[in-house]
Design a protein around this nucleic acid. Structure first.
Length: 860
RNA sequence: GGGCGCGUAGCUCAGUGGGAGAGCGCUCGCUUCACACGCGAGAGGUCGCUGGUUCGAAACCAGCCGCGCCCACCA
């Protein structure tokens, strides 16, 4: 080792991540380890596409966990020698990005409208060029080994081509169509949004009961509503066909108060006779349920509320121009004056809100573009049923299938400016021309006998999720016959939290099957959502967010990665700062344990498994089991166990025991250095997928690695069954357990930690020689009084020992043993147990009983 | 309304049929020549409640109580 590096190793008694991480990461980039060639087949290669973060995004804990899991898998498979690609990129995120830039404009006293569409879109691009790579840089801080040379963006030229190709194909297949249909109108963004972008909130409204006159009768009909203003657009009243109370009314007409319109009284199964009076006002223009009923019965659809959230002419001149809320008040006031309100009650129910703007959804009928989903869903259901796509944990499989089987048309047009402008043109007579480019559209118009110059392009853009659905193949070069696509599609696994299972994952499966003819990934692993430590949602606006970059700054990326994996699970978890701290402590421990080894092995030592003594056989055996456990955890997506099993092996077995046991040999130059280096080399490689930085840094100090390949491309350890050694395990574990008993006794009796006690061996029994050193005993043949017998060891009276205290400790132990003996005896006296329990369980119980009796015997 | 999940040490969580575990916190003792981000030792739990299955239940089954999430057009 160079003197300078040796000095650094000697002087650095703490793992200092900040100093090392950037340097190590740059070296990885320089080595091009993250940039695989487009060769080989998807079966032999390993690939993952990152869930593209919004281009406006900043790395949050969700990204950090999601990214850490992917990176651990990517690094594992890269080390296994597979040609490994992790696709990185960002999503243009229509509404979100548009909102960010609009906010910027507002701060300048300008507005989107003033600027005009073209200039605004250019402004967003400017923003993207300036800030769009922020989150990508943040993934680097995490240590993410993505292919940064192949970064993609959903509005890349090639990506846009993929989007248009898909849109046109779906249109030609009749799956994409334009229709006047009930949509979720978001008054906040002035756009339609899809069902999945709606969240239901419990709110308290007033439930009004309103009386309607029935034509040709003295009776009245009472209906209940929380939205009296929508009555202005009512076109019927419905009752349940089996409701005896109203049977006679079906076919008659009610008169709509304030308006005077005649409303047919119809019968429909959807009406719940139990609710209210069993009569339902039908507003096909402003209620999704009523819309369905209206279409079934061929009712007139009146739009009384416009897209601006104000009442239209159709609402009548008294109300036109009012906001919906004002109209409600006006309607209620008039009804009250006319004595038509029977009751007003507070009413708690769930109401749709825009996930994006947070405003209450206004259901209305609008001319939008839709995508029919059931045909696309069919094969996507099948691949999951057949486990061609495996969803882990399995409960999500049912949820996925359930949703897919009841899938509804998807509203894909958005009234925004930022996004993929729909490849649709309209002729003067309303003719629709759909084509991948303007030139093609013109040609098609020509064929149809339309004047190409008169074509007007659709101004709506596509739902952002429409383009995200193509992510796994559009990023790999589709629709071209790209070598990347041939080498890496289908990808191996998709990592996500469950919130975008429908919004994104299901749609990728459908699109992948439809356009590439193959699933986009073999596995879907649904991981935790990380909550704030108090169990609330982690969010900036609530002030509950914890910034992963701050954690990296303070504790290092390895610490955060370890912590996140250790706290991760298949269900939601609370963020645990303690787990990150545990990761930091582990990195520090790895650094320092390595210093012990690296600074004390002779120059030029080569790592090699060389079991000289039984403790060497023991640690090699334990290492094989640790490799097995960690590998299993990573392969089975059980990351918490992978991380924590590694921790337990490294800290409790390797550091606490093996290093303490071999220290004298290491200092004295007795043979152990090769074996120690071997164990460390394996450990570094084993931990690398989880803690890449500290392992890479230490690796560079291991003799024989100085000019060799870095650990990022070192072979991942495989357990060697020949090194598993149950005898050595038994023997060393017995020595450890005896040492601990002796230490416990010393501590209880109050003996100074440093003092060496005289002891004697019980005849015929020899504990492992290590015990004397580890428990600080000195054996002699004196015939002094034995104060205690612990296993095969008698501790002799000496000036340092308080004999009374020692005796009371002995008697405590005796009580403990008696309790154990009677527990075991009772169990073995139970005939049912002896007869029915498996033989090895019974034998084990007998052996324990024997051991307890023997120790009790020894204590006298 | 339907579905899923959770309730284990003070806290955050493992454990899914054979003697209750980890990390943090707490107590006691240590400047032991890798590490005080450390070392050694320890205290702390009727495993939400009730019943059942079993020789044996934290685990399996049923019911109840409490909490969370997803889906759903009862106004």
């Amino acid at each position: 080792m160079e003197a300078e590096r040796r000095k650094r190793l000697e002087d650095t008694t703490r793992w200092e991540p900040a100093e090392v991480e950037r340097r190590v990461f740059d070296a990885w980039l320089e080595g091009c380890y993250f940039h695989p060639p487009a060769t080989g087949t998807p079966e032999e290669n390993y690939s993952i596409v990152i869930p593209p973060p919004n281009v406006t995004g900043e790395l949050h804990m969700g990204h950090a966990l999601n990214g850490t899991i992917q990176d651990a898998l990517i690094r594992l498979n890269r080390m296994r020698g597979r040609n490994t690609l992790w696709v990185l990129g960002t999503d243009h995120a229509g509404i979100g990005t548009q909102a960010v830039v609009e906010r910027e404009l507002r701060a300048e006293g300008a507005s989107r409208k003033e600027l005009g569409r073209e200039a605004f879109v250019e402004r967003v691009w400017e923003w993207k060029r300036k800030y769009g790579s922020q989150i990508v840089e943040q993934y680097k801080r995490l240590g993410a080994s993505c292919d940064y040379e192949r970064e993609r963006f959903t509005l890349d030229e090639g990506y846009v081509r993929a989007v248009y190709r898909v849109f046109v194909a779906l249109y030609e297949k009749g799956l994409v169509y334009r229709d006047n249909y009930m949509v979720n109108w978001d008054p906040g963004t002035h756009s339609a949004i899809s069902d999945l972008e709606v969240e239901n909130r419990e709110v308290t409204d007033t439930l009004y009961e309103i009386e309607y006159e029935v034509e040709g009768s003295d009776g009245t009909l009472t209906i209940a509503t929380v939205r009296p203003e929508t009555m202005l657009a009512d076109t019927a009243v419905a009752v349940n066909p089996n409701d005896d109370r109203h049977r006679g009314l079906v076919g008659k007409h009610a008169v709509l108060p304030l308006v005077g319109r005649r409303l047919e009284i119809i019968a429909d199964e959807h009406v719940d006779p139990e609710f209210g009076t069993g009569a339902l006002k039908i507003t096909p223009g402003h209620d999704p349920a009523d819309f369905e009923i209206g279409r079934t019965h061929g009712l007139e659809e009146i739009s009384a509320i416009g897209e601006d959230g104000r009442m239209t002419e159709a609402a009548g001149e008294r109300f036109a121009g009012l906001t919906a809320a004002e109209a409600r008040e006006a309607v209620v006031t008039e009804l009250r004056e006319q004595g038509l309100i029977r009751s007003e009650e507070p009413y708690i129910h769930s109401v749709p809100y825009s996930y994006r703007s947070g405003e209450r959804i206004e259901p209305l009928i609008s001319l939008q573009w839709f995508c029919r989903m059931n045909e696309l869903a069919r094969p996507a259901i099948e691949v999951v049923e057949r486990d061609r796509v495996r969803i882990t944990p399995e409960q999500h499989k049912r949820v996925y299938l359930e949703w897919m089987r009841n899938i509804r048309p998807w509203c894909i047009s958005r009234q925004l400016w930022w996004g993929h402008t729909m490849p649709v043109w309209y002729g003067l007579g309303g003719e629709i021309v759909v084509a991948e480019s303007e030139e093609e559209a013109a040609a098609r118009a020509h064929e149809l006998g339309l004047d190409p110059d008169s074509l007007e392009r659709e101004s709506d853009v596509l739902d952002t999720w429409f383009s995200s659905a193509l992510w796994p193949f559009a990023t790999l070069g589709w629709p071209d016959d790209d070598p990347l696509l041939r080498a890496f599609y289908p990808t191996d696994v998709l990592l996500t939290a469950r919130d975008i299972l429908f919004l994104w994952v299901a749609r990728m499966v459908m699109m992948g099957l439809e356009f590439v003819g193959e699933v986009p990934f073999d596995d879907v692993y649904v991981h935790s959502v990380i909550q704030a430590p108090d169990g609330r949602r982690m969010s900036k606006s609530l002030g509950t967010g914890i910034d992963p970059l701050d954690e990296i700054e303070v504790h290092g990326a390895d610490a955060l990665r370890f912590g996140l994996l250790a706290m991760s699970s298949t269900q939601d978890v609370r963020y645990s700062a303690a787990k990150v701290q545990q990761g930091r402590d582990l990195a520090n421990k790895m650094w320092n344990a390595s210093r012990l080894v690296l600074l004390n092995v002779p120059e030029g030592t080569t790592p090699a498994a060389r079991p000289t003594l039984i403790e060497d056989r023991w640690i090699l055996s334990r290492l094989q089991r640790a490799i097995e456990a960690v590998t299993k955890g990573l392969d089975e997506y059980d990351f918490a166990h992978a991380a924590l099993d590694f921790y337990a092996f490294f800290w409790s077995e390797l550091c606490d025991w093996y290093l303490e046991i071999v220290k004298p040999r290491l200092y004295d130059g007795e043979p152990v250095a090769e074996n120690l280096l071997h164990v460390f080399e394996q450990v570094l490689a084993l931990a690398h997928p989880v803690m890449p930085f500290v392992t890479e840094e230490i690796w560079s100090y291991v003799p024989s690695h100085e000019d060799g390949p870095p650990v990022v491309v070192a072979p991942f350890p495989a357990p060697d069954p020949d090194l598993v050694d149950p005898d050595a395990e038994r023997e060393i574990e017995a020595a450890i357990s005896l040492t601990r008993s002796l230490r416990r006794w010393r501590d209880l009796v109050g003996i100074a930690a440093g003092s060496v006690l005289p002891a004697r061996l019980v005849d015929g029994k020899a504990p492992h020689e290590l015990v004397a050193r580890l428990a600080r005993l000195e054996f002699d043949k004196s015939d002094a009084e034995a104060l205690a017998t612990i296993g095969p060891v008698e501790i002799l009276a000496s000036g340092e020992i308080d004999a009374d205290r020692a005796r009371s400790r002995v008697s405590e132990r005796r009580d403990q043993l008696r309790a154990e003996v009677s527990r075991a005896e009772g169990k073995l006296a139970n005939e049912g147990f002896v007869a029915k329990a498996p033989q090895e369980v019974v034998d084990a119980e007998r052996a324990k009983l024997e051991a307890y009796r023997a120790e009790l015997e020894e204590l006298g």
